[in-house]
């Protein structure tokens, strides 16, 4: 398993590790039934706090991606419905990213400056956020 950590960036290290392990599971680079490196081994390899690795594995286990067997190690689970959903999610995100690129490109071609685009994004994002949170709270109420 190959994990590469960028230091000094704003993405927390635990998230970086989790994302890379997840991606490799989904991409099939790590087969179901494979054993992930032990906590101690991975901590040593990446020079990362042992507890951080433990948290990552626990999170992945909670997602149903891996299983922590006491005294044996951490094993990748066969793709279940949850992982199918995750793959779906990933696919959709890629799709979205392509669309977004096209939108930005069009805006630039129309003569909008980057700060202008940024402002538009901020405005739209916060609008959408409030909308989503409203929807969420109304959902909870109902």
């Amino acid at each position: 398993m190959f994990v590469r950590i960028e230091r000094g960036v704003s993405t927390p290290i635990s998230r970086q590790i989790a994302e890379q392990v997840r991606a490799q599971c989904l991409a099939g680079l790590i087969q179901p039934g494979d054993c992930l490196p032990s906590v101690r081994q991975l901590a040593r390899e990446l020079v990362v706090n042992v507890n951080t690795i433990v948290r990552v594995y626990e999170r992945l286990a909670a997602e149903g991606l891996v299983e922590m067997r006491h005294g044996e190690g951490t094993f990748v689970l066969p793709p279940s419905t949850t992982t199918n959903l995750a793959a779906d999610l990933k696919h959709q995100r890629e799709q979205y990213s392509r669309e977004y690129q096209a939108i930005v490109r069009r805006g630039l071609l129309l003569g909008l400056a980057v700060p202008e685009l940024r402002r538009m994004l901020t405005a739209t994002a916060s609008d959408a956020k409030t909308q989503i949170s409203k929807e969420n709270s109304s959902e909870k109420r109902s």
């Binding site: 950590i5 230091r7 000094g8 290290i13 101690r40 901590a43 040593r44 990446l46 020079v47 990362v48 706090n49 042992v50 507890n51 951080t52």
Partner: peptide
């Protein structure tokens, strides 16, 4: 740092250390 992680954290030591290198601290410290 690797030795620190490997030999101290895994053996349950309490470690107090000072440092200027924040990137490394972030990875290693609780």
């Amino acid at each position: 740092n690797r030795d620190l992680v490997e030999h101290l954290q895994t053996s349950g030591c309490t470690v107090l250390y000072s440092s200027h290198l924040l990137d490394e601290v972030e990875a290693v410290a609780d």
